[in-house]
Design a protein around this nucleic acid. Structure first.
Lengths: 360, 360
DNA sequence: TTGAAAGCGCTAACAC
DNA sequence: GTGTTAGCGCTTTCAA
């Protein structure tokens, strides 16, 4: 034996020059797979299999392992599992804010659908500026989630590049963008705006208004709304369209104020499309306060079909999106992808519907 | 060179009897710390330090590492980091549902506060029965988060035991329970119910009503409300109190229906305390539909001070909780704990206030 | 079906 | 300040 002999029999070491101190103390931690294996009198691998693929294991081993797990209260460390298997069973979602009820339903269905497939959701909020958003994306990528769901978030060019480079499956939602990063589940803001404009014009409205948040999605909707309102034969188009912008997140209050602005800028407005039911509720409330009758004097269309839309007075005509389906599809796409399954078409337009109620 | 020469220079091997096959193929993965280190011409540890504790590293190395990171687009793998350091920088939160806007504000502030301290939030939804909830807790424990925040969730005895056994810091919120698992940030449902009952009685109301969800928190509030309404000298107490229960989650519709029930069971009810502003909005709406004036004929008090409370008509008198503060404190407690800092008092009552507006 | 070995990518501990 | 070593707790791969 050459120079300094190895003092530590159990540990491996290069054959060559190293002092090899005794056990270096790392913190203990809880019960591990190995301990369960010893207790059950089987190998670690058998425990792992019993837990993750019970069908590959004999009944005898299964019973022993289950008993050992039961008696120790062992809960497998998924951090270690993730590192070894390169699958985290974690999915990240980024939304502008969970405050607006718009993304709630999607997040909820994401959580539920993922839980059913033994995955968990990590939730991030963007909407604090590009800088922070890119940092958030890095924090997410660092966790190597099995997928990333973007809810109404348009990443910066740099963010987009990192996303692509990471190789992590991405599902963009809410918006049928032209050139998706990867997968896509959404609907067309333009199509909605066009449909609502047509809806209002067909009902004889001619002085239209749009109230939306100061973000890109609303802006796109506004543009399409104006365009389609002013298009077509003279008898089938608006004579005026006005757009008002409110600071996101939209509130009932900002809706009330926006109606004031709208009427100041465009007196005689006889129909308003709001980019959120919350805004619409504000508009309806303010209209009542001003002695305007809804829908006789002014028609109001909201967006989201939130839970209160049907039950306020007057009930709200609104655009309904099946957000639950969006969440489900996003979850399924990601889980399937990470299980190596072929998923068919991964660009899905879930469409929308106009729910006609009293306000329009 | 002795027997089977080591074919693989980079890997260690026991000195003794093992066949040592060649490289066993694991999937490649992306760029690793080691590659960045090679590129920068420094050790892996220096890269790790440059990234996590730049103050411990010389400017020269820092620059080299930064350049290498920049050029490769390297994003450190936190799964590996978590396993090695026993700190996941992940915090889990469990709420009954993010659909009810009640927990939204807390979750939002949790996310924000955690992000500011370089932690992420994992979100779970309970409220699918004890079975599922315990499974959810195990899924969470398996990820070894740095902390678990329980929002209005009362774990089963078994769940509680596993939580304690896991050694993971737990913050219970929303409710000043008697015997917390670990840390606690909340308020007293009883104190609120008592305060509201007193508030209404002092304003001359005598036939009180309570409308709440069919869950334990609301039940506690209902009990305390009834108790304190019927306590005290005859001239300062209610002559009747009626409790109506709605299926959670509360909606405007269920509030409307509940008012109907209330008036059927207890005609002449002149004040109602709702366990959510959403219910209160329903009650107010239904009252208007029935020709009852609010607050003259019937006073309504809500709970939550949701964004619309001040802006609907009539504006809602309601109980306000500083949920943002709850989220902040919960995040701070957990992060401090996982950094080994002493946190002082970890049972905090954040209190509440009654916001008086038109409806009462 | 079961087990042994190696290693996922990082950081704690220690030595220099 | 910087590098070396071992190992976090699991799963993949391969061999029996």
């Amino acid at each position: 034996m050459p120079p300094p002999s190895n003092k530590q029999p159990a540990a491996a070491g290069r054959s060559a020059p190293s002092p090899l101190p005794p056990r270096r103390g790392r913190v203990a931690g809880g019960i591990t797979l190995l301990e369960v294996a010893r207790l059950a009198g089987v190998s670690a691998m058998s425990v792992s299999r019993a837990l993750n693929a019970p069908e590959q294991v004999s009944a005898a081993i299964l019973a022993k392992v289950r008993a050992a797990v039961e008696s120790t209260g062992y809960v497998a460390n998924r951090v270690a599992g993730s590192l070894a298997s390169q699958r985290s069973r974690l999915v990240a979602a980024v939304v502008p804010s969970i405050a607006g009820p718009v993304f709630q339903e999607m997040v909820q269905s994401l959580i539920a659908e993922l839980a059913a497939r033994d995955h968990q959701l990590m939730l991030g909020q963007s909407g604090y500026g590009t800088q922070e958003e890119d940092a958030l994306l890095d924090a997410i990528i660092g966790r190597r989630p099995d997928g990333i769901v973007l809810g109404g978030v348009v990443p910066s060019a740099a963010g987009r590049r990192r996303l692509v480079a990471s190789g992590i499956p991405v599902v963009e939602t809410w918006d049928m963008v032209q050139d998706p990063i990867d997968m896509l589940v959404g609907f067309s803001h333009e199509a909605i705006a066009t449909a609502v404009a047509t809806f209002l014009i067909e009902r004889g409205r001619r002085r239209l208004g749009f109230i939306g948040g100061n973000h890109e999605r609303a802006a796109r909707r506004a543009g399409a709304f104006v365009d389609s309102a002013l298009r077509g034969p003279a008898r089938r188009r608006a004579v005026a369209v006005q757009v008002e912008t409110v600071v996101a997140p939209a509130t009932v209050r900002s809706g009330r104020q926006a109606l004031g602005e709208m009427l100041r800028h465009q007196p005689g407005t006889d129909a308003i499309f709001c980019s959120s039911d919350v805004l619409a509720l504000g508009v309806v409330t303010e209209a009542a306060a001003r002695g305007l009758r809804v829908p006789q004097d002014i028609a109001v269309v909201g967006f989201g079909d939130l839970d209160f839309a049907a039950d306020v007075s007057p009930s709200l005509t609104t655009v309904r999106i099946d957000s639950t389906r969006i969440g489900q599809l996003a979850a399924r796409f990601i889980v399937s992808r990470s299980e190596g399954l072929e998923v068919g078409e991964t660009k899905v337009d879930v469409g929308f519907s106009i729910v006609t109620r009293e306000s329009a």
